[in-house]
C-alpha cells in the first residue's frame, strides 16, 4: 500500500523510506533465523558424529578367547559329530532356563556319546532386565569357567539358580561361589573379578546380532533354526542330521 502516485513529494519519500526500512528489517530477520537454524543443524550433526565415535571407541578391539572357544562362543563335544548345535542363550532369559531344564540333560548325553557337537553362544541382550548387567557378567563368567574346563557344569548351575528379572542378579562373589561349587578354582575367581571376558561377551553378542539373532533361546541344528526350541523339535532335528 505504499508509494501511491498522486501523493506529494515528501509523503512519497516517507513511504519509500518506510518500505525500504521494512525490507531491511525483513532481510535482517531472515538472516538471524538462518543463523539460528544453521547453529541447530551444526549441533545436530556434531551430536550424531560424537555418538558414532563413542560407539566405535567402545567396540572391543582385542578380545580374549576362552579355552575351547572362539569369538562367537564356546564349543563342546567331539569334532566328528553328525549334528552341530548352535545355542544362543542369555543367562537372564527365563525361556532359556525352560529350554535348559527340558533339553539340558539330553544335550549333555549327546555331547558325551559323540552324537552332537554344541556351540554355546551366551549372548547378553537382557542387561536391562537386571540392575547390575547380570547377562554380561554371567556370560563373561561362563568363559572363565570354560578356561577351567567347567563350562557345561557352570551353565547348568547358573540356569538352576537363575535370578528373577528386574532383580540385582547374582553378584560376582555369588558367581565365584557357584564356580567353586562346580570345581572351578582360584584362577576362575580372579577371572570373574577382573571381568576378563566382558569384551568377549560384547563381541559375540554383536556378532549374533549381525546374524539376525535377536531373541533367546535360538537353536540351530546344522545351521537350520528350529521354529520352536523344544526338546521334541530338537530331538527330531538331531535324528534327521
Amino acid at each position: 500500500m505504499t508509494a501511491k502516485t498522486g501523493k506529494s513529494g515528501p509523503q512519497r519519500a516517507r513511504a519509500v523510506a518506510a518500505a525500504k526500512l521494512a525490507q531491511q528489517k525483513a532481510a535482517e530477520r531472515r538472516r538471524k533465523s538462518l543463523i539460528a537454524g544453521g547453529i541447530a543443524v551444526v549441533v545436530l550433526i556434531a551430536a550424531t558424529v560424537i555418538g558414532v565415535a563413542i560407539y566405535n571407541s567402545q567396540k572391543p578391539v582385542q578380545v580374549a578367547i576362552p579355552r575351547g572357544g572362539d569369538s562367537t562362543g564356546v564349543t563342546l563335544g567331539k569334532s566328528g559329530a553328525k549334528a552341530h548345535l548352535d545355542l544362543y542363550v542369555d543367562y537372564q532369559c527365563p525361556h532359556c532356563k525352560e529350554f535348559e531344564d527340558q533339553a539340558g540333560a539330553q544335550i549333555t548325553k549327546w555331547i558325551a556319546d559323540g552324537t552332537a557337537r554344541v556351540t554355546y553362544h551366551p549372548i547378553a541382550i537382557l542387561d536391562n532386565a537386571s540392575t547390575t548387567q547380570y547377562s554380561t557378567r554371567a556370560s563373561a563368567a561362563s568363559a572363565c569357567a570354560a578356561d577351567a574346563g567347567k563350562f557345561a557344569e557352570f551353565t547348568t548351575a547358573l540356569f538352576a539358580q537363575q535370578p528373577a528379572e528386574g532383580s540385582a542378579g547374582i553378584s560376582d562373589a555369588g558367581l565365584t561361589t557357584i564356580g567353586k561349587s562346580v570345581g572351578a578354582g582360584d584362577t576362575f575367581a580372579q577371572c570373574v573379578k577382573a571381568g576378563k571376558y566382558r569384551s568377549w561377551t560384547t563381541k559375540l553378542t554383536d556378532l549374533a546380532s549381525q546374524k539376525g539373532i535377536t531373541s533367546t533361546p535360538t537353536v540351530l541344528v546344522n545351521g537350520k533354526q528350529l521354529d520352536q526350541p523344544t526338546l521334541a523339535n530338537l530331538t527330531a532335528a538331531v535324528q534327521k542330521a
Binding site: 549441533v43 545436530l44 556434531a46 551430536a47 550424531t48 558424529v49 560424537i50 555418538g51 560407539y55
Partner: peptide
Amino acid sequence: GAGLPFFEIAL
C-alpha cells in the same frame, strides 16, 4: 543406532 540417541538429545 549409535548416532540417533545423541541426535535425539541434541534435538
